[in-house]
């Protein structure tokens, strides 16, 4: 039973992981992440890589929608901007991936800021529609700007390479994605225990008092757009190296919805929510697919549509039973064992 959490110094109370328990969980997570590639086969590593990329993208949209309260329906387009930037720089300038990736993020951030400009005047659904417009405009650009994007067929790029090692198997890409993901998550976690992140949440919760506190609304909202799109751009860039091809149908509206759903299912406004949501949304369709296999080849065709229905029902079910997402469920489970043998 955890009866209290006492600190003698404010430094200790302001630390990033405050309790021994959270540090133990972190240790377990790190051990699992490090051990995983030596245990899993290439399919497992492929799924793990996808999850890692989706965690980065979901954390990005979480910064904007979950923490700052600005709904974005155009996140896949920002990912696409990152992916095409990486492909173009890699093919035409020949820059190495560790320069291409941040640049992809920065270009996506710049596009995100432009898309975010109306957010000072419009909120809620209206802003959602404005970002939706950005999704379709950018999707059109991906399709039609052939010299840069390769049009509908897309464009391919060479594998990432560092110090003579070519990162082209799932095993090597796994490490690349894990490193970027961990850095991205640490950055976000730090952000929300300091001044800038608090301002984001203040804008979400009560923009009028945020202004009275001296928070510049426009600058804060644009910063959130920039950072969120930077994350999307990073995720898109990693996807480019992951699939070694960039094409418009990877970054459609339905991908935007997928990312938004991941954050809603996982829990808006918590870092853990983005992580859990991305894992859930990536894995559940695969697991449901595996289950339909059990019923034999003849059933697959019939059950594959049922799979979509079950997936949708699961999402709705989570939202009905825990609107604050998987992160809240996890919190409740934690509460039960922390105060065991007593009950809430």
């Amino acid at each position: 039973m955890l009866i209290g959490n006492f600190k003698e110094r404010y430094e200790a109370d302001e630390a990033i992981f405050r309790t021994t328990r959270s540090r133990v969980w972190l240790g377990i997570a790190v051990a699992l992440i490090v051990a995983f590639p030596f245990v899993g086969n290439s399919y497992h590593l492929y799924m793990a890589g996808l999850i890692g990329i989706n965690i980065i993208a979901a954390t990005g949209i979480n910064i904007l929608t979950g923490y700052t309260g600005l709904i974005s329906l155009g996140h896949a387009a920002f990912m696409g901007v990152g992916a095409y930037t990486v492909a173009w720089l890699s093919n035409n300038v020949g820059l190495p991936f560790y320069i291409c990736l941040p640049l992809g993020g920065l270009v996506a951030a710049a596009v995100g800021v432009v898309v975010g400009i109306p957010s000072l005047r419009i909120k809620g659904l209206y802003l959602a529609i404005a970002t939706l417009a950005a999704q379709f405009i950018l999707g059109f650009v991906f399709n039609e700007w052939e010299p840069v994007t390769g049009g509908g067929r897309g464009t391919s790029l060479a594998a990432a390479e560092i110090g003579g090692i070519v990162l082209d198997t799932e095993f090597e890409l796994y490490w690349l994605i894990v490193v970027v993901m961990v850095l991205a998550l640490l950055f976000a976690r730090n952000l929300f225990r300091t001044r800038v992140g608090r301002a984001f949440i203040a804008v979400r919760d009560r923009d009028i008092s945020a202004e009275v506190m001296g928070i510049n609304l426009l600058r804060t909202k644009l910063t959130a757009f920039a950072l969120s799109s930077f994350y999307a751009g990073l995720a898109g860039g990693l996807m480019a190296y992951f699939f070694k091809v960039v094409s418009p149908e990877q970054y459609t509206f339905s991908v935007s919805i997928f990312m938004l759903a991941a954050v809603v299912v996982g829990g808006m406004g918590t870092i853990l929510g983005g992580i859990l949501g991305a894992i859930f949304m990536t894995l559940i369709p695969e697991i449901l697919g595996e289950i339909t296999q059990i019923f034999g080849a003849g059933a697959v065709a019939m059950l594959s549509s049922a799979r979509e229905v079950v997936f949708g029902l699961l999402i709705v079910g989570f939202l009905v039973f825990e609107p604050r997402g998987l992160a809240q469920i996890w919190k409740r489970i934690k509460r039960v064992y922390e105060i065991w043998p007593f009950r809430t």
Binding site: F187, A188, N190, L191, T194, R195, V196, G197, R198, A199, A202, M213, G214, I215, T223, L227
Partner: peptide, 12 residues
């Protein structure tokens, strides 16, 4: 908030 200086990069 107004009396502090930390920017985005330093905060993250």
């Amino acid at each position: 908030h107004v009396h502090m200086k930390t920017g985005l990069l330093a905060a993250g």
